[in-house]
């Protein structure tokens, strides 16, 4: 098995882990963490899959490079929204049960 394919499979694992976390975890910070794990998994699949014959491919690498920068902007925006939500409601999750913390 090539290195690229190995990391693509690891990316699948991380993507599913992050997706499950984004659904199951109630705390907004944890949802942001889960989304970031999901994104890293998708990036690994994108680059790993393109390099599954172990030829370095600059096209997906450039895409992922821009993707990482966009991901940090999205994270900052999500955290800003979570902070504004917390400042208005005092809650850290979207469900009613999250009110207690």
């Amino acid at each position: 098995m090539s290195t690229g394919l190995l990391y693509a499979l690891a990316g699948v694992l991380l993507f599913v882990l992050g997706a499950a976390g984004a659904v199951l975890l109630a705390h907004l910070m944890r949802k942001v963490l889960a989304f970031n794990v999901m994104g890293s998994g998708a990036f690994l699949v994108l680059v790993g899959l393109a390099q599954r014959e172990d030829v370095i491919d600059p096209v997906p690498q450039a895409m992922v490079l821009t993707g990482i920068v966009v991901a940090v902007a999205a994270t900052a925006l999500a955290l800003g929204l979570a902070r504004a939500f917390h400042a208005r409601t005092g809650r850290t999750g979207l469900t009613e049960e999250a009110r207690r913390d």
Binding site: F43, V47, G48, Q61, A62, V64, L65, I68
Partner: peptide, 8 residues
């Protein structure tokens, strides 16, 4: 780095 992508 292992995937040969030093830029990323």
């Amino acid at each position: 780095a292992r995937l040969g992508a030093p830029d990323i």
